[in-house]
Computed example of a mutant assay.
Amino acid sequence: MITNVVAIVYDGVSPFELGVVCESWGMDRSEMGLPTFDFAVCAPEPGTVRTSMGFDLQVHHGLDRAADADLVVIPAVPRAADVPPAVVEALREAHARGARVMSVCSGAFALGAAGLLDGRRCTAHWMHTDELAARFPKAHVVPEVLYVDDDRVLTSAGTAAGLDASLYLWREEFGAAAASLVARRMVVPPQREGGQAQFIANPVPECDSETLGPVLTWIVEHLDEELAVDDLAARFAMSPRTFARRFRAETGTTPHAWITTQRLHRAEQLLEGTDRSVDQIANDVGFMNAATLRHHLRRVRGLSPQQYRRRFRTAPREPVEVTA
Rank of each mutant, 00 (worst) to 15 (best):
F55D: 12
V77Y: 07
P240F: 01
V72H: 07
R97D: 10
A176K: 00
Q306D: 15
R317G: 15
A233Q: 08
D56K: 09
A160D: 02
L111M: 01
V104S: 09
I200V: 15
P214D: 05
L154M: 10
S52H: 06
F199Y: 13
A66Y: 09
T260R: 15
Y10T: 08
M186L: 15
A257P: 01
R135D: 01
D70C: 01
T254K: 10
N4V: 03
S106A: 14
T211R: 12
W170E: 03
A177V: 14
R121M: 08
H60N: 10
L57Y: 03
V204A: 04
E225A: 12
T251E: 12
H256C: 00
V41K: 06
R294L: 02
H295E: 15
V229Y: 00
T251C: 15
T36E: 05
D149A: 14
A139N: 08
Q280H: 08
W258N: 09
P78N: 07
I259K: 01
A110D: 08
R294Q: 13
A179F: 10
L34C: 07
L181V: 12
E17C: 09
A40P: 01
A290E: 14
A237N: 11
F247C: 10
A197K: 14
V278Q: 08
H296M: 08
N202G: 00
G175D: 03
T159L: 15
A201L: 15
G54F: 06
P255E: 13
D231T: 03
G213P: 00
F37P: 04
P85N: 09
Q306A: 11
P205A: 12
G33E: 02
F247V: 06
T123S: 01
C207F: 14
L63A: 02
E318I: 08
H128L: 15
T274K: 04
V20W: 05
E193N: 07
I281M: 01
M1L: 08
E172L: 09
L169K: 01
V101T: 04
E23K: 06
S156R: 05
A324C: 11
A197Q: 14
L271N: 00
P189M: 12
R246G: 01
I259T: 10
E318W: 09
E268R: 12
E172C: 12
T3E: 15
V204S: 02
T155G: 08
D231M: 07
G213S: 09
L227F: 11
R276Q: 10
V142E: 15
A96M: 07
G54Y: 08
V87T: 13
W170N: 04
P305N: 00
P15I: 09
T129W: 02
T261R: 15
S166N: 03
V300K: 05
Q280P: 00
